[in-house]
Simulated assay, not measured.
Amino acid sequence: MRISRLYLPVPLASGADVVLDGERAHYLRTVLRLKRGFDLTVFNGEGGEFAARIGVCHREAVSLTVGAHRPDDRESRLDVRLGLGISRGERMDLAIQKAVELGVGAITPLFTERCVVQLDGERKAQRLEHWRRVVWAACEQSGRNRVPEVLEPRSLEAWLPEAAGLRICLDPHAVHGLRELAPPVGSVTLLSGPEGGFSDAERDMAVAAAFVPIRLGPRVLRTETAALAALAAIQTLWGDMAV
């Protein structure tokens, strides 16, 4: 039977007993349906993971005994940062989930001219928390022990000056592909647009910020497909699969 993995954003140490809070306890007991004596793997995002065993598991309390530490590292050797135009509901969730599986190091949701999602105040805070939970679950599923950060949503104009390393902007109208770029020295910053793509003015801003427009092929890809296809190609060329 596959050993379940659980993200616990608390200090962890071999031999310690950890009492789970309501949400994590509910997830372990009701969703994973684990019981007393079951083994699992826990991690807190600080690197490596721990064996653990459930000591108490009932409606009133769930606790774990933390076992041996395993310094497993499944991170990409390439630091990739993703600026992602905000899209609706499940499309955004899918893009974030799969970006984590593909080894992205950080994600910044971006407000753009053609963004159809309006977020402000409490709703923005709720969506940010939701996206971070999508990342946690993707790390649990994919085996990652470092948790990529989802940064505060901001405007494209405010985010562009923060980009570093090789800067790539996905643009179906571009004439060059990824294979034409020199391998990056350091990090990669990938910019992917929302539903409806970038406006001409936004493309010009990206180019002025040293982003290289890149096309992924002759077909126009959906917003959630474009970012994932680019991440997979980047990892193949320069990251996980590069030799």
Rank of each mutant, 00 (worst) to 15 (best):
A232K: 00
G83R: 11
P218V: 10
I214T: 03
R91G: 03
L160I: 08
L231A: 10
V243R: 13
T41V: 15
C139W: 05
L78P: 08
W238M: 01
A230P: 02
E122D: 14
E90T: 07
L237Q: 04
E152A: 15
P9V: 12
G55L: 15
S76R: 00
T225S: 09
G67F: 07
R33Y: 02
A182P: 09
L78C: 11
D93Q: 09
H173C: 15
S187I: 05
Q97R: 09
E162Q: 14
H58P: 01
E90I: 03
R5V: 11
V18R: 10
Q141I: 02
L170T: 06
L40V: 12
A125D: 14
A174P: 11
A13V: 12
E140V: 07
A68N: 12
I234E: 00
E202G: 13
A137I: 01
A174C: 11
A61G: 11
L94K: 00
E162F: 01
A125G: 01
E195P: 10
V66H: 08
R29W: 08
G89N: 13
Q126D: 00
P184I: 10
T108D: 00
Q126I: 00
D17V: 15
L160P: 02
E195I: 13
V185N: 06
E49M: 11
E101A: 06
G89M: 10
E75N: 12
R179G: 05
L160A: 11
G193E: 03
R53T: 11
P184L: 11
G45S: 13
A164Y: 04
E60P: 00
K124Q: 14
S14A: 15
E23R: 03
D171G: 13
A226S: 09
R203E: 08
G45Q: 12
A233R: 04
R77C: 09
G55E: 15
L231W: 04
A233T: 01
P153I: 03
L64P: 01
C57N: 05
V117W: 00
M1S: 15
